[in-house]
Amino acid sequence: MAGPQTTFTAGYRWNIAARFLLAFLGGFVCVSTFGALAAALFANAQWMPLPQGVHVFTLFGFVAWCGIAMWVFFHEHLRHVALGVVGSAALFYALFLLVR
């Protein structure tokens, strides 16, 4: 943990800025694509009408968003984090295009 007397290098600042963007924007894209995929799957299986699925997974998405932010700021390697967030969002979106 950064102590009170930590010297903040430029690398450290960029690391934080990148993680912030990944947590905030990446988290948003991740929960949106996952929600779209799940809502489309539930609608196809006739478990829930599409608007209901969208609503339910959007409500759930706020907590998932926080979970993603926690993981982004926990994992040691920024590259893995970026791959994890962008890759999973791309995967969810691709699957969503397949099932919708």
Binding site: V31, S32, T33, A36, A39, L50, V54, T58
Partner: peptide, 8 residues
């Protein structure tokens, strides 16, 4: 969080 609604 409009993303899910926009996509679907």
């Amino acid at each position: 969080s409009p993303g899910t609604m926009f996509l679907t």
